Amino acid sequence: TFELKGKVGKVVKIAEDHYLVEVEGDKWIAYSDEKLSLGDRVMVVDVDGLKLKAKRIP
């Protein structure tokens, strides 16, 4: 999973306390310091076990 750092994905679902992000065809649980919206493009900035930390990108 460490190779996911720096990869770009898309928010495909918003849950109460996390997001579901699709990166290279796989879906991952993600969290972010900022509020994300459905369809936002994100970059993986860190990997915490099986969770990704994501940041919105333009």
Rank of each mutant, 00 (worst) to 15 (best):
L50P: 07
L4D: 15
G9T: 02
K35L: 12
A30K: 00
V45M: 06
G39S: 10
K10V: 11
M43V: 14
V44M: 05
V47P: 02
V23D: 02
S37V: 13
D48K: 06
V47T: 07
E24D: 07
V23R: 01
K51D: 03
P58T: 12
V42P: 00
V23F: 05
L52A: 02
D40T: 06
V42N: 00
L52M: 04
D40Y: 05
T1R: 15
V11Y: 00
D33Q: 09
L4C: 14
D40W: 07
V8E: 14
V45H: 03
Y19D: 01
D33R: 07
K27H: 08
G49S: 04
G49Q: 06
V23S: 03
V12R: 06
R56S: 05
V45R: 01
G25M: 08
T1M: 15
H18S: 10
G25F: 07
V12F: 10
D46Y: 03
L38A: 08
A54V: 15
K27C: 08
F2T: 15
H18F: 12
K53M: 05
D46H: 04
K10E: 13
K35W: 10
Y19E: 01
K51R: 12
P58R: 07
I29P: 09
A15N: 13
E24G: 05
I57T: 05
K27I: 09
D26N: 14
T1C: 15
D26Y: 15
E16W: 13
K27T: 10
K27A: 09
L52R: 01
V21G: 00
H18N: 10
T1F: 15
R56F: 06
L36A: 02
S32R: 03
A30Q: 01
D26G: 14
F2K: 15
V45G: 03
L36D: 00
P58G: 12
K51V: 13
H18I: 12
E3M: 02
G6Q: 01
D46M: 03
K27M: 08
L50C: 13
K10L: 13
F2M: 15
E24M: 10
K35S: 09
K7G: 03
T1W: 15
R41F: 14
G49C: 05
V12L: 14
M43R: 04
L50F: 14
G39Q: 09
K5R: 06
L20M: 12
E3W: 12
T1P: 15
I14C: 10
L36N: 01
G49F: 05
